[in-house]
Design a binder for these strands. Sequence first.
RNA 1: CGGGGCGUAGCGCAGUCUGGUAGCGCACCUGCUUUGGGAGCAGGGGGUCGGCGGUUCGAAUCCGUCCGCCCCGACCA
Length: 439
Amino acid sequence: MRLSRYFLPTLKETPSEAEIVSHRLMLRAGMIRQSSAGIYSWLPLGFRVLSKIEQIVREEQDASGAQEILMPTIQPADLWRESGRYDDYGKEMLRIRDRHERDMLYGPTNEEQVTEIFRAHIKSYRDLPKMLYHIQWKFRDEVRPRFGVMRGREFLMKDNYSFDVDHAGAMRSYNKMFVSYLRTFARMGLKAIPMRAETGPIGGDTSHEFIILAETGESQVFCHGDFTDFDPLGEAVDYEGDLQPLVDSWTQLYAATDDQHDAERFARDVPEDKQVVTRGIEVGHIFYFADKYSKPLDAMVQTHDGEQVPVLMGSYGIGVSRLVGAVIEASHDEAGIVWPEPVAPFQVGLINLRTGDQACDAACEDLFGKLRGAGIEVLYDDREERAGAKFADMDLIGLPWQLVVGPRGLESGVVELKQRKTGERAELSADSALARLAG
RNA sequence: CGGGGCGUAGCGCAGUCUGGUAGCGCACCUGCUUUGGGAGCAGGGGGUCGGCGGUUCGAAUCCGUCCGCCCCGACCA
């Protein structure tokens, strides 16, 4: 992509409404545009990141054996009357009436909808287990939306629903998601720690929140320092095998958000030099709630013994749009965003320091073509801007690599390769720069 | 939902108290000079001053009302 043609409205000044760093940087980097409180348009750069994150989530869901579907954003109220949540959910649920005066709602979540799909088609334990997920926009009419996409009213969420005939099977499904989440967040360059959690309006008795450690996070968290050494991507996972030991290894050490925090236990169970007190962002939440929805919605399956039992369910959410903000909270510096490679909107920013100079233009065009030919996503800054402005913009949008081409270097046959994260620079020939980036 | 604040150009703001032809910086357009970390000069474009109503010869400014947005707290992927 040529920057001269790209829609990238970066800002030098910070819009006054933005309080936290990810919100400021997303606005300054031209990633989003606010439509109304808690509702945003995603501009090209932001949309690329959102799509990358969505794709990682999708791949890890698929790997765990879940199947992707797509349910509507608008749901009939009657379904929610069946579960009893139409009245319970309160003002957070956006209620709509269609032209026939039928009560509808913009879905804040999809337990009812997916249970209705399940009950219509699945009647036997032989068809279980099943995990169905979708990645769809949700709307929750929060009292106070804030922090940009970190707590919007409209947000993109991955929600998965598991269906099992017995408790042991349901725990296997729960564990699959538990492990899948660890891998999902790790692939984005995030250290997410599972913490025991309250179940809230979803209900149920088994639940974990996945919390990213970030200085600028929303809530205070307490955990054992050894979590930082854990590597969820260290070995391949067999989702059909026994995941319990792996789950146990992640749940034995102390980890709690402030509302679940037990200061005495923390002091007793965690050695002082291992006590980590920092802030965190909730990016995922998994629940096991058994027959809370299947019972009222009459989603029954027949067991091996011919008995009719309500199917046992869990639900598993990842805040996809929130993750964009969360990654920035976890990875930025004074100059701007520092994207982890897997979620970066482009891998390389190619900077032409002297657009209009024949040698620079030719060298850049050559590199641009070769990089794209090698399948590398590259944003080529071919604008008629001064070097300083180009450096500043490139640092702001945080692409992992900057390939800098200027007249001075070309004279001695070199270009400069800079790593955004470390600031490390290397002068090398165009060919070895290419080799380095393609490798 | 309680408390506070703010709506003036794409962004950041002044002007409001004390009514009198709507301003500044950045961004944008044109030209020239510049060119390795957000250039300089000259010229230029862009505003129903959040909406509606009122007071007044005259309202961004005073009064009323509605709307929107942000921040702090209680709640949430």
